[in-house]
Simulated scan of single mutants.
Amino acid sequence: MQTSFYDYLMTRRNPLDHGAVAEFANNAFFDQSFPKHTNDFATLSQYLEENAGYLPTMTIFDAAWQQYLAAMN
């Protein structure tokens, strides 16, 4: 069974790390509506574009997505 993007992202959480992906992970942790059980790029992208005011640019999601794909291979 493949790990969901959210589960992967939670491995990147670190309150002491102020890098873009760590900040994204830290904020996603507190987002009660985040689609936690999917690894579908389109679903995640649409959700973040419409609902994630804590994500200043989608390039951060793109970077995290690439890291996720690399980790799953």
Rank of each mutant, 00 (worst) to 15 (best):
M1T: 10
M1G: 14
M1D: 10
Q2N: 15
Q2A: 13
Q2H: 06
T3L: 15
T3N: 05
T3Y: 05
S4G: 06
S4M: 06
S4L: 10
F5P: 03
Y6S: 01
Y6C: 06
Y6P: 02
D7M: 00
Y8M: 04
Y8Q: 02
Y8D: 00
Y8S: 04
L9G: 03
L9V: 10
L9D: 05
L9E: 04
M10C: 11
M10N: 04
M10Q: 13
M10K: 06
M10W: 02
T11Q: 14
R12A: 14
R13N: 05
N14E: 10
N14Q: 05
N14I: 07
P15W: 00
L16Q: 14
L16M: 14
L16W: 13
D17A: 13
H18I: 02
H18A: 09
G19M: 02
G19V: 00
G19I: 04
A20V: 07
A20T: 12
V21G: 07
V21H: 05
V21N: 00
V21Q: 04
A22E: 06
A22H: 06
E23N: 10
F24M: 12
A25T: 08
A25W: 03
A25S: 12
N26A: 11
N27I: 00
A28C: 12
A28I: 02
A28S: 13
F29D: 08
F30N: 11
D31G: 05
D31E: 11
D31P: 07
D31A: 05
D31F: 03
D31S: 06
S33K: 13
S33H: 14
F34N: 08
F34T: 05
P35G: 07
K36R: 14
T38M: 12
T38W: 06
N39K: 09
D40M: 08
F41I: 03
F41K: 13
A42L: 08
T43G: 01
T43D: 04
T43H: 12
T43P: 01
S45W: 10
S45R: 14
Q46T: 09
Q46A: 12
Q46R: 13
L48F: 08
E50C: 09
A52Y: 03
A52T: 03
A52P: 04
A52W: 02
A52C: 11
A52D: 04
G53I: 06
G53F: 10
G53H: 11
G53Q: 13
P56Y: 07
P56D: 12
P56N: 10
P56G: 08
P56E: 09
T57R: 15
T57M: 13
M58W: 03
M58N: 08
T59A: 15
I60L: 06
F61H: 08
F61T: 04
D62I: 07
D62R: 11
D62K: 09
D62T: 11
D62L: 10
A63S: 14
A63F: 03
A63C: 04
A64M: 02
A64Q: 04
A64F: 04
W65Y: 14
W65H: 10
W65M: 08
Q66A: 12
Q66M: 12
Y68K: 06
Y68W: 09
Y68G: 02
Y68N: 05
L69E: 11
L69D: 07
A70W: 08
A71T: 00
A71I: 01
A71D: 12
A71S: 15
M72H: 02
N73K: 11
N73E: 14
N73P: 00
